[in-house]
Design a protein around this nucleic acid. Structure first.
Lengths: 189, 189
DNA sequence: CGACAAAACTAACGATTGTTAGTTTTATAC
DNA sequence: GTATAAAACTAACAATCGTTAGTTTTGTCG
């Protein structure tokens, strides 16, 4: 794997631009300017604009998938699993908030196999989430008003963390986890 | 105002396409094809692609601003005001879910005055929201863990309604309001 | 049927897009 | 100091973009 470092710099710079204007509105010349080079030079390190997008999104989607699979296969209570999911989202967000903008807003611009692969991962993730909530309701750990609304409102908040967290100054990850768990689960338990 | 009806058809068709691929990825030829005409014919009814976007977004933003102003100037309790805000979001979402996609994801492609106008409305909206929560905490109506997190998580959910609501089948607006109020405020009160 | 306006059309423009080919510069190792 | 590879460059391409100008079709009313 040669050029891995320079490629990663390009991908990181692209994630910032994609966050600001979206994938389609960012040109290779915009990205080159941000890197301080010419557009043609980018192609010494990457194969296409599309490769940049899929590198950003697929890596993050696999992080979520792996994290969810570990949580699902653990023998914790439903409430503890939900706490772990919240913690997972915060960890990923702190590590790569810029990339999450692309995952949330530009996944539909993935092509062919990567689009199908992503859509399957996202569907499986939501299904796992829903199953955990449902199990919690069945076990009387969670008092349910409406399972679908709980799943939707919790996931909406976690998915939007990437926008909110950077505006908070010097927030501690563990305090954030505790507060998010409190706010998201207090109305549920 | 001539051609108002045909223009509205174009704006509505554009909102659907913008929701699917984002403003930048939708071409005037895409929009024309969706309307069953040629791209040049669009310009008998609209002035520019940008005008379509601002028509969609500014109208919706003003709806939210007007609704919020009425709620702020009412003499209800903080909890009741929050319930009214939830109700406002649901009403707007049921009426124009497609347009809300542009408001949420493509506002940054507004130009000049419209961009500034939108950003001010959004900032004022969030400030009003935050003030209502803060007042509720001061009056002991709301037990606060963290005001910022409550504002953020509630707004995240309400803003994402446009994605979730169309996937629910034949959901009744009043039942939805009751359930959303229950889920969003139960952990707060 | 003829007049008139609404709404479609054809054709084309200048600008910008992602990308390629070939060349030159820069940095590293012997 | 020369060889080698990494990484930049210039120049240009075919395609597509939003948009304009001018023309023709469609529909309505007397």
């Amino acid at each position: 794997m040669k050029q891995e470092s320079r490629k990663q710099e390009i991908v990181n710079a692209a994630a910032i631009l994609f966050k600001e204007k979206g994938y389609s509105a960012v040109t290779m010349r915009d990205l080159a300017t941000a890197m301080g080079i010419k557009a043609a030079s980018l192609y010494n390190h990457i194969q296409s604009k599309q490769e940049i997008l899929s590198t950003i999104i697929i890596e993050l989607a696999e992080e979520f998938t792996d994290g969810m699979n570990q949580i699902v296969s653990s023998d914790r209570s439903s409430i503890q699993k939900l706490e772990n999911i919240i913690s997972l989202h915060i960890d990923v967000t702190l590590r790569n908030a810029d990339g999450l903008a692309s995952l949330n807003n530009d996944w539909m611009h993935l092509e062919e196999d990567n689009l199908l692969y992503f859509e399957k991962m996202r569907q499986d993730y939501e299904d796992n989430f829903r199953q955990i909530v449902k199990k919690g309701v069945d076990m009387n750990e969670i008092k349910s008003n409406n399972i679908e609304i709980i799943v939707f409102s919790t996931l909406s908040t976690l998915r939007t963390l990437y926008l909110w967290y950077p505006k908070q100054k010097n927030i501690d990850a563990n305090i954030l986890k505790k507060d998010m768990i409190s706010v998201l689960l207090q109305g549920v338990v």
